[in-house]
């Protein structure tokens, strides 16, 4: 591989990894805090992307009316930021609804029941979307006017830079939230021993809602960034991404935020470089075989948070 092409692949891998990382965070948090695999999470990414579509379309229409006397590119930047903010907020409500309706009644049920609940919620989100919006694919509005920079023969677009920046920024923000705030502290306590958390005067239901809200908001951010990079949306777009992000979450280690993010980027790198070397039909085969081997040697992933051996009264 030539050096230029090598760096080009790194840029591509960073972009792909950004999506995996953001989605993996939600998987990892829910697994860590609630001992639950939320298999609907990939579809929350899809829903976030669709909500982002409508929010940005609405904001762009509003911008066209010229209510704010701003230069076009400033306006577009403002629309992107507002779209991220509003969509993350709305999608966090979707996540909380899923927790409240789907998972809370099963809090003490066997974990397998909770897992298939997730699969069913996912199917409901996909087919519900199909029923409401029909089979035509939507194309995501262009929120970033593409500009390419040629850096020593490596092509870097402003889109890719924004995507990678937002992904890393949100990961670090989440990390700080979980390390420094009392709500984050409660989440970490839940991850260790949720049974006795109510004895601290903390409502498990509230922490569960918060966890779903945060994870869903990050998935929504991934959905918008995905729309920016690949502007064609369809109801099943979350399935493969969801599974891959799930793999990244497990690889990162239960409940570990930096681990999930790191593993997300690593997965992006493995996929891109495998595809650069081998025929693209072999990409997932080889990529996931590599991950299987890694898990054989590190069955708890990279940085799994410890948890109490005594998870009962």
């Amino acid at each position: 591989m030539q050096l230029q092409s090598f760096f080009q692949q790194i840029v591509n891998a960073l972009q792909l990894g950004s999506f995996y990382a953001l989605i993996a965070l939600g998987y990892s948090m829910v697994y860590g805090v609630l001992m639950l695999f939320n298999f609907a999470h990939g579809d929350v990414f899809m829903v976030g992307s669709y909500i982002g579509f409508f929010v940005s379309a609405g904001l762009l229409a509003l911008a066209k009316t010229g209510i704010l006397p701003l230069a076009d590119n400033v306006m577009l930047g403002l629309v992107l930021v507002l779209t991220l903010f509003i969509t993350m907020l709305l999608t966090s409500f979707v996540g909380m609804l899923i927790e409240r309706i789907g998972y809370r009644p099963l809090r003490n049920a066997p974990r397998a029941s909770a897992a298939i609940t997730g699969l069913m919620i996912g199917i409901i989100l996909e087919t519900g979307n199909l029923a409401i919006l029909g089979p035509t694919r939507l194309s995501f509005p262009a929120l970033i006017e593409s500009v390419s920079y040629d850096i020593g023969g490596v092509l870097v677009t402003n889109k890719k830079m924004v995507i990678v920046f937002v992904s890393i920024f949100l990961t670090l923000a989440l990390h700080q939230f979980v390390r420094r705030t009392k709500w984050g502290m409660a989440m970490r306590a839940m991850a260790f021993d949720f049974v006795v958390v109510p004895l601290m005067g903390i409502s498990i239901n509230k922490i569960a809602l918060l966890t779903f809200a945060l994870g869903s908001a990050l998935a929504a951010a991934a959905g918008i960034l995905f729309g920016v990079a690949y502007p064609v949306l369809d109801p099943y777009m979350g399935i493969l991404f969801g599974w891959k992000a799930f793999v990244a979450a497990i690889l990162g280690g239960r409940g570990s935020i930096l681990g999930a993010s790191l593993a997300g980027f690593m997965l992006g790198f493995i996929e891109i470089f495998v595809a650069a070397i081998f025929p693209s039909t072999m990409r997932d085969l080889i990529a996931f075989s590599i991950i299987l081997i890694i898990l054989t040697f590190r069955p708890h992933g990279f940085f799994g948070e410890p948890y109490s051996a005594q998870l009962r009264l």
């Binding site: 502290m185 409660a186 306590a189 260790f192 004895l199 601290m200 005067g201 903390i202 109490s308 005594q310």
Partner: peptide, 22 residues
């Protein structure tokens, strides 16, 4: 509770602060 049930992954300070959550 029996067996202490501390949050081993939190610091002493965090364990004490967590109890004042509400």
């Amino acid at each position: 509770p029996e067996g202490r049930r501390l949050f081993d992954n939190l610091t002493v300070k965090e364990n004490l602060h967590l109890a004042t959550f509400a």
